[in-house]
Amino acid sequence: MDDDLAKKFLHGELQDLRKAVLWKLEGLSEYDVRRPLTSSGTNLLGLVKHLALWESRYFGEVFGRPSPEAQPRWDDLSHRGADMWATEDETREEIVDRYRRVWEHSDATIAGLNFDSPGHAAWWPNPDVRLFNIMVHMLSETSRHAGHADILREQLDGSVGTIAARAKSQPDEASREAQRTEIERVAKAVAAD
């Protein structure tokens, strides 16, 4: 496969996933985007904040193009986990805008470098990387957190999918409940054997 074609494909997938993550916030209250929805405190706005920090780091620091905005050090233990939730002083708009600015910086890095351009991810066991490695890593990372966001959003209001147009074509609540009931029945039946 041609490197430019592969880079363009991976970049396009990353761009689509970024939009999907932000779509998960649309139409929700401040409480719902911030509240912990798992025992570890995972929440929608925190996922966006986390992705903004790490995408900035991977497409910035790794390639000698640090973000123009101050970032906590990756090795500063006092900030560990702080990227997973929004403080009272951080607004949704600030976090979303920061993520979009990170996209611009990342996109410039991706456009300006070759697939085999070297970088250095000091926090990795094998820190010498290529743009290819980082693009695959960030695509995986963003996809993973987009999946988390999908489940969290479904818990809040039943909305699933990656774009608003698909959400409107979802089965009605009665159909979903019937499917869930059948899956629960099967799980209990198998567990009883």
Rank of each mutant, 00 (worst) to 15 (best):
V96F: 06
R153S: 08
K7C: 07
N43S: 14
R73K: 15
E13G: 13
A174S: 13
E61N: 15
I110Y: 13
A82V: 02
S143Q: 11
M138P: 07
E94V: 01
T42D: 00
A86G: 10
R180D: 12
I110T: 11
S106L: 12
L10H: 11
L45D: 07
E90Q: 15
L17G: 04
R92Q: 14
G147V: 04
G60D: 06
E173K: 14
T91F: 05
K188C: 02
G12Y: 06
D150K: 01
P72R: 08
A192I: 00
G119F: 08
R130A: 05
V62A: 11
R100H: 05
D116L: 06
G27W: 06
W123K: 00
S175P: 00
A178H: 01
A70M: 03
R180P: 04
H105M: 05
I134A: 08
R101G: 07
V129L: 05
V190G: 00
P127I: 07
A189I: 02
D128V: 14
V136P: 00
D157H: 05
T42M: 10
H145G: 04
Q179G: 09
R180Y: 10
I110G: 10
L28V: 03
L25E: 03
L10C: 07
T38A: 12
L47F: 03
L131H: 03
A86R: 11
E94K: 06
S175L: 13
L139A: 11
A164G: 02
R34G: 05
L45S: 04
A149C: 10
T38S: 14
D2I: 08
N133L: 05
P68M: 08
D97T: 14
A164W: 08
A191L: 14
L47E: 11
D83T: 09
G46R: 00
T109E: 08
G161L: 12
L45E: 09
R101H: 10
R65C: 02
A108H: 01
E30C: 01
E55P: 03
G158F: 10
L131C: 07
G119I: 10
H79D: 06
A167E: 15
G64D: 09
M1R: 12
E184S: 02
R80L: 15
E88H: 02
A165I: 14
K49G: 04
P68Y: 04
G147R: 06
K19R: 14
A70L: 02
D157T: 07
R100P: 00
T162N: 11
R34Q: 09
P68N: 07
F115E: 12
A191Q: 15
W74K: 03
R185M: 01
Y58K: 00
H50M: 06
H145D: 05
H50T: 06
L17F: 10
W124C: 00
A111N: 11
V96T: 08
S175N: 05
S159N: 09
K168T: 14
R65Q: 14
A164D: 09
R130V: 04
F59E: 08
L113A: 04
G41M: 09
F115Q: 09
G158W: 13
L28W: 14
Q15L: 11
A192P: 03
